[in-house]
Amino acid sequence: MIGKTGLLRRLAWLVVLTGILIAVAVEPVSAQQPTPSDDDVNRVAKQMYCPVCENIPLDVCPTQACAQWRELIRLKLSEGLTDEEIRQYFAEQYGDRVLDVPPARGLNWLVYVLPPLFIAGGVWIVARVFRSMVKPSAENAGASLETTPTPSVAEDPYVAKIEEELRRREREGG
């Protein structure tokens, strides 16, 4: 059985604990930012997508669900979260698809790595093509025309015109 003094002591502890809890709860409120503007909200929402309205950025999506998300962003901003923290919050809640670009981890690395690799491969192929195909023109190499079957047409306008004329006739014939 608890005595009167014990009861009072417990009540006192309860009051102190409640006070601490309220202080903890109220502390963030005292640290709240002024109400974020629509522009603040859109700055974050622009980099996010609603999973329902696929391929429509959150800042312009007209649905009610997206309007609620924007209000949630406003709330999070008012709680002092940074843009990145808010994006992470939504990604944890709803999956990575809410982010405008996949986070660079796991399989997602492929989206960033493969295109540069392909382009590098293309550069390598083009370089090989250049190396294998580029032969100096007869004039530059000091060689005879026989060694370079396709001399530069730019070198002799007369030859260029004749060649062009012959090609034109062939085209017109077709």
Partner: peptide, 13 residues
């Protein structure tokens, strides 16, 4: 297909 999770590849990429 491979992870079961869809991602968004948006204009920034």
């Amino acid at each position: 297909l491979f992870t079961g999770q869809k991602v968004t590849v948006g204009p920034a990429f």
